[in-house]
Design a protein around this nucleic acid. Structure first.
Lengths: 344, 344
DNA sequence: CAGGATTGTGAAACCGGTTACAGAAAGGGG
DNA sequence: CCCCTTTCTGTAACCGGTTTCACAATCCTG
């Protein structure tokens, strides 16, 4: 690798001048500028990002910590972060925390010692007391608010309301909720949304709430149990899309069908939802937007002099698809399956 | 941030001694060692990774370049890379190339100037002449071989054979192939595998091969076209799982069902395949293993003195699920749908 | 044309570590 | 007790840039 001193020698100037040419600051005579540029080109010189970082204490790198990149919610987020970061000349280090607080803390330590300029923490545990000595910009995604850090999230409570009311509108008269883990912020909020709608209804019963860990397999087990313990369930609001898919699989395993026997709605709006059959109704979060905004915010905090932290709440939207479509279109027999009649 | 000099002052020793304590090399008297350790603890000192890197020209960072993290094949790969890298004390920078060669080259340049120690290039374009002046370890994933770099891949040709033969065994008598993009290595190989099995058959016709870009939407369009142009197709081998899902959706839109009317098999073995209904048969690649091995190899090349590059080929396996299950179980009417009879 | 402002350039300190080297202290053998 | 190892520690150079400061050259103005 060529160094700035070699360039200086070749161009017959000092390293200071070369540095000025590279950063286009300070006074440099036109003819000198040319000479240096030429030397740079000839030697195929690129300044060492490390040496630069050692001076200005910026690495142009941000860390993204998330529970598990294989959870379909996160790739879209990661993509947004990476793209926006790249646009601003930053690169992104990705860390899977597996959702445990210990890993999260380790990852934060590691990122700090690698001198990332900021961290986006998209993990979901509640704990925050342990991050006390993180003194670099950090934005929180999908977590409880915190006076010190900016946070990005959606109105999970309202989403829960929306999902539940949608099932009611579709004529469901006994609606269960498959909630996310108890210690997870988003899961709690969505559950509260559901509860606020149904708790006054006469059919409501605490047994209609089950918990699972936001994963498919766990959701299948939990749904089977739910259906065994309760008679007459005709709608399920699942805490996320992955679990909604688990619901559907469990329902099918009982010989029932979706949405005819039981309508199912998820939460998140991952792209998976329109890949499965039946296509899944869901409460959509603007995932890409959230990642984009988180990245904008972290970069603003890194580069801005004033570090005003902000709380940004995005809206969720109901996406209605087949899995909750119980009001059949006129002209179709009840129970018939929809078909696009292609052009064959 | 505290520096090594502050620690030295606090412990009443020189920076050299502190450095010796940190790296546990050289001679240090026990009592001095203790003193220094104590000072380190008290000041909560962590050496700057940047300063260290400046000396030894290692950043303990590897870059992973892939076409698109939202393609479900890649998160699993990324996870493997990240986990193994972490185990060895490395962190991972993630880059989406969007599959274009220009971006790839830009990303490689960027990673080089950030002094990553090695790169895993999991992208799929053919071009390699442009990487001539990459002089740091690089392993190629799912690409054509290259004498200079190690490569990891599966036997895509054999996978194509396996998929096609499986459809034949299931009684299909006119099998189409929805191939990946023409310029992509894996797509070509899989197509060749298919072709080798069917080209001698009397029903074979070039019109049974369609191309799409490995994406869902594109696959839907291509499949519709395929079905319009050919009569009597009863089996489709899709170049990857995402396209297989597109196939199924297209088939449904024609009012046909899978696997009764048309059997469908994919390629990759992403976890999505057992989420959809019907569950998708596929040719499974050991994705996690591949990522793990790629990372092991890159670290070996980084840390090892000898840089023997290796070509590693993994085996693919046929996973049979509902989407190709045309040999009904005894006792079930033809055309009936399978149901687990839960315990309700 | 004198003298201040502006422009152009280089030497050297600095960022925060590692390490070669040299010298001091302690230990061991004759 | 002297001398030679071995153990211990500090000084200073170095990694590859940026930046301050001082000084030189040029320009402008009265």
């Amino acid at each position: 690798m060529t160094t700035i001193r070699e360039v200086a020698k070749k161009a017959g100037v000092s390293v200071a001048t070369v540095s000025r040419v590279i950063n286009q600051n300070g006074y440099v005579k036109d003819s000198t500028f040319e000479k240096v540029q030429e030397a740079i080109k000839e030697l195929n010189y690129r300044p060492s990002a490390i040496a630069v970082s050692l001076n200005n204490k910026k690495t142009k790198t941000i860390g993204l910590i998330l529970p598990d990149i294989t959870n379909p919610f996160f790739p879209e987020l990661a993509k947004a972060v990476e793209e926006v970061a790249n646009n601003y000349g930053y690169t992104m280090i990705l860390c899977n925390s597996s959702g445990t607080v210990k890993n999260e803390i380790d990852q934060i330590e590691l990122l700090q010692s690698k001198y990332v300029d900021g961290i986006i923490l998209a993990s979901d545990s509640f704990v925050e007391k342990d991050y006390k000595d993180v003194n670099l910009p950090m934005v929180l995604l999908d977590r409880g608010a915190n006076p010190k850090n900016s946070s990005i999230r959606v109105n999970n409570f309202y989403g829960g309301v929306l999902a539940t009311e949608h099932l009611l509108e579709q004529g469901c008269i006994k609606i269960a909720h498959l909630a996310g883990p108890k210690h997870v912020f988003t899961g709690q909020q969505r559950l509260e949304g559901y509860r606020s709608v149904v708790e006054s209804m006469k059919w409501f019963d605490e047994k209609l709430v089950a918990y699972a860990n936001y994963q498919l397999d766990d959701a299948i087990t939990a749904t089977k149990e739910l259906l065994n313990k309760n008679k007459g369930i005709d709608g399920i609001f699942a805490g996320n899309d992955l679990m909604a898919i688990g619901c559907i699989k469990a329902i099918h395993s009982f010989g029932l069908s979706v949405p005819e026997d039981i309508a199912v709605i998820g939460f998140d709006g991952i792209s998976l939802t329109n890949m499965i059959i039946p296509e899944l109704s869901t409460i959509k979060q603007p995932i890409y937007e959230m990642g984009k905004e988180a990245t904008n915010q972290i970069i603003k905090e890194i580069e801005g002099n004033h570090k005003e932290s902000r709380d940004i709440e995005f809206d969720v939207t109901l996406i209605q698809r087949e899995s909750t479509n119980r009001k059949r279109r006129p002209g179709l027999e009840d129970g018939a399956t929809f078909k696009d009649n292609g052009n064959r």
